[in-house]
Design a protein around this nucleic acid. Structure first.
Lengths: 338, 338
DNA sequence: GTGAAAGCGCTAACAC
DNA sequence: GTGTTAGCGCTTTCAC
């Protein structure tokens, strides 16, 4: 049994005894100066035949796709499974669905050729970007993507000046870092170990900058870079670092690393917060509960996604971004670890 | 400054002094019986002009889109942020990207009208489905989506018989439940509290069925349904239940709920595993570390996604699914909580 | 070995 | 108020 070919505008037009133009207008809700009778007849035919407009034909004709591309530039296949990313994407996808836009998810390996992706990104109305890697690499990517002529929305980027038709959406990482730094300083501690992912990431830099702001007189700040994607490697790195020197406080660049730090301290018999203080960052529901409850910074990740969706949809309607940069506040969360 | 119109096949053809047919063939790698010189000339022109084929036109012509839709039927806007879902989607999106397919993510509210979505799903080559809700609702959805005539791949569904051109990909939840049940039974415990999400979900049923298999003689099995999306509500429900009766073991239907259960037990001064045993399910890297280390079941969520991608791509190439159902094994993970 | 031409299904300007 | 028509950019058959 071969499935019946899907009905087209023509089929419906014939069935309703009108021209395709009329059907097109009805389907698109342009009832201006149309008799109620015709409209009713067409609507009946549409229902009867189960007609759906062919999106590819429509896209070809109008060059609008009702689709936003999300490109994650990362070397880890599990990029989507990071708690922060996950919430941003959830918010984005959700808000877009609500406004009848689709989200096209694609991963770009930092070392893979761009062309395939550039080509695939073509059938979206705009592009959103999640980038790790050093600043110059990120700039190259932004430039390349801009060449497609599509509006670009970049998450968690710190970039000045922001190029034309590009919008940055981020949280105030620096303020979060500062709050923690001030707290550490308020406790009279100055020997701090910062645990950050190996792969540079602008938000992490901002958190560290904030930490420095807050500490003010940066007694001794040591930076430990860990390969975040490999739990085992993180443990090993922490163990080795702590064997060499135990700091007064550990500033972890996210809650997962904070949990790991508490674990590593436990392995050498140090308690949190009694012996060593530990702070986290991003505090998302998906990140499991840690003991003791973390002093951390609550991230508006989901809202970052929904706000980005609104910005994009409006950009597409109005022709320009209403703002070049949207910075959402973070919320300090006092726990018992710091 | 108006952006120059993107080059089309025609532009390239004129630049290379050949017909559009030739350019099309070169772009698609159909070099059969073509002179090396022509090919080279066309390739040069393509490079020089920075030509990319228009995907919408191609789709219209070929009715292939190189795109898979992922539709999550759930009432929670944060559906994507569930650890299990997150890993499946990460695997899927990643494997699809590698095979030059895009993943189009869309959420469907259980109460929202289907039509909009059915329409949007049109521009994909196949549909993957994540569904919660009662069995009859799920069946209706499968039927409706099948009407689009697209291949359908459903995650974590237990369904018999499986309809035509539909493929189910799931993990062996029942075996996982059974392993835990047997362990509980081996410890000589029989007063068990199962904590499950309010909203029915076939995988959860399977885990419970497995638990019953394992317990064999189901002393006393109480089921507590909680509104999983609301942390606060979960705590409250657990507190109330434990105030009424403290079981010998808690079978949580996922690790997040297990963590919550341990917390609730701590609030009434009960220790795990000394006073009460607790088991989890799904054990994914993103789910934070719990203390004590959970006895749980390790889920192949990421692999579920990558395998699904392969199945889909092959289905599209060959015309039929090579298997109607793919069940991946789970791996028991002995911890200290049970 | 290469080209001409039909047509995928739709929208919108214009004619009636 | 409704219909005619010209493409949007591409693939593919068939003719040369």
């Amino acid at each position: 049994m071969t499935r019946a070919r899907a009905p087209t505008l023509h089929t419906v037009a014939r069935a309703a005894g009108v021209s395709t133009a009329i059907v097109s207008r009805v389907v698109n809700g342009h009832y201006h100066g149309m008799s109620a009778a015709t409209r009713a007849r067409v609507e009946a035919a549409v229902d009867r035949l189960g007609y759906f407009p062919n999106r590819a034909a429509r896209s070809l004709r109008t060059s609008r796709h009702h689709r936003i591309a999300l490109i994650a530039v990362d070397s880890s296949p599990e990029f989507l499974a990071d708690p922060f990313t996950t919430y941003v994407v959830a918010g984005l996808s959700n808000a877009l669905s609500e406004q009848d836009y689709g989200l096209l998810v694609q991963r770009l390996n930092r070392r893979a050729p761009l062309d395939m992706l550039l080509m695939r990104a073509q059938d979206a109305d705009a592009i959103t970007l999640f980038m790790s890697g050093p600043q110059d690499e990120r700039l190259v990517l932004i430039t390349r993507f801009r060449e497609l002529g599509l509006p670009l929305l970049v998450f968690q980027e710190t970039l000045a000046p922001i190029p034309d038709d590009v919008c940055v959406v981020r949280q105030d990482d620096r303020a979060g870092g500062r709050w923690l730094g001030e707290r550490i300083r308020g406790l009279g501690l100055s020997d701090v170990l910062a645990v950050v992912p190996e792969l540079a990431w602008p938000a992490i830099e901002a958190r560290l900058a904030g930490l420095r702001d807050g500490l003010d007189e940066p007694g001794s700040l040591t930076i430990l870079k860990v390969a975040e994607t490999d739990m085992q490697a993180v443990s090993t790195a922490l163990d080795r670092q702590l064997a060499a020197h135990v700091p007064e406080a550990i500033f972890a660049s996210n809650d997962q690393l904070a949990a790991q730090s508490i674990g590593a301290l436990a392995r050498i018999g140090r308690e949190v917060p009694a012996d060593v203080r530990v702070s986290g960052f991003n505090c998302l529901p998906i990140t499991g509960t840690v003991h003791p409850p973390l002093t951390t910074i609550r991230s508006p990740a989901f809202a970052l996604g929904t706000r980005a969706a609104d910005l994009l949809v409006r950009r597409l309607a109005e022709g320009r971004f209403e703002t070049k940069e949207l910075v959402l506040p973070v919320e300090p969360q006092a726990g018992q670890s710091l």
